[in-house]
Simulated scan of single mutants.
Amino acid sequence: MRTPKIITAVVVFVGIFFSGCKAQEVNIKRKDLQNIIIDGYLHKVEMQEIILDANQGAPVHYHPCPVVGIVISGKILFQMDGEDAEILNAGDVFYEPKDRKILCFENVDANNSAKFVATYLKESNEKSIELTH
């Protein structure tokens, strides 16, 4: 059974991620940003910091695995197939389901770059992204 390994990996990941936080903080405030239920188990979690230059966008694509992300800075126009377009600002989170076409993921700021962190939740050795034609 792989579940204990997954739980251990997640606990270690969270511990490392938040290791810069002060342990003495007593007034920690938490705000749920997104909760996603994923069936099965994960083989690998990959995180990437991605920077889009001013007015730069990704081509139409999909991910062979679910992707959870958070915008660090900038303003991104985001649209999945079958959904309305929306603007993501710094602090906004997004979810891209496995194999769902992403029609638009574009930095709409003409002067500044946009930065986000994408977390790829992989069941095996899937690629992180596939371009569509």
Score class of each variant (00 low, 15 high):
2 R>F: 02
4 P>D: 09
5 K>E: 15
8 T>E: 14
9 A>H: 05
9 A>N: 11
11 V>L: 14
12 V>T: 12
13 F>S: 09
15 G>S: 12
15 G>Y: 01
15 G>T: 08
16 I>Q: 07
18 F>L: 10
18 F>N: 07
18 F>A: 08
25 E>R: 06
26 V>R: 07
26 V>I: 05
29 K>P: 00
30 R>D: 02
31 K>R: 08
32 D>P: 06
33 L>C: 07
35 N>V: 15
36 I>P: 13
36 I>R: 03
38 I>E: 13
39 D>K: 13
39 D>F: 09
40 G>Q: 09
40 G>W: 12
41 Y>L: 11
41 Y>P: 00
41 Y>K: 01
42 L>P: 05
42 L>V: 10
43 H>N: 15
46 E>L: 10
46 E>K: 13
49 E>S: 14
50 I>C: 10
53 D>N: 14
53 D>W: 01
53 D>A: 10
54 A>I: 01
55 N>G: 11
56 Q>M: 03
57 G>T: 10
62 Y>E: 12
64 P>C: 08
67 V>A: 03
68 V>I: 15
68 V>F: 02
68 V>N: 04
69 G>C: 06
70 I>E: 05
72 I>Q: 12
77 L>W: 09
79 Q>S: 14
79 Q>D: 12
80 M>C: 14
80 M>R: 15
81 D>N: 15
82 G>R: 13
84 D>I: 07
87 I>Q: 10
87 I>A: 07
88 L>E: 11
88 L>G: 10
88 L>K: 12
89 N>H: 14
90 A>I: 06
90 A>K: 11
91 G>M: 05
94 F>S: 10
97 P>C: 09
97 P>Y: 05
101 K>I: 15
101 K>A: 15
102 I>P: 01
103 L>A: 12
104 C>A: 14
105 F>V: 04
105 F>A: 06
105 F>I: 02
105 F>K: 08
107 N>Y: 04
107 N>R: 02
108 V>K: 02
109 D>E: 07
113 S>P: 03
113 S>V: 01
116 F>H: 09
117 V>R: 01
117 V>C: 08
119 T>M: 10
120 Y>N: 03
122 K>W: 03
122 K>T: 03
123 E>V: 03
123 E>Q: 12
125 N>F: 11
125 N>Q: 08
125 N>L: 08
126 E>V: 06
126 E>L: 04
129 I>L: 13
129 I>S: 12
130 E>R: 06
130 E>P: 00
130 E>D: 13
131 L>H: 09
131 L>T: 13
133 H>V: 11
133 H>A: 14
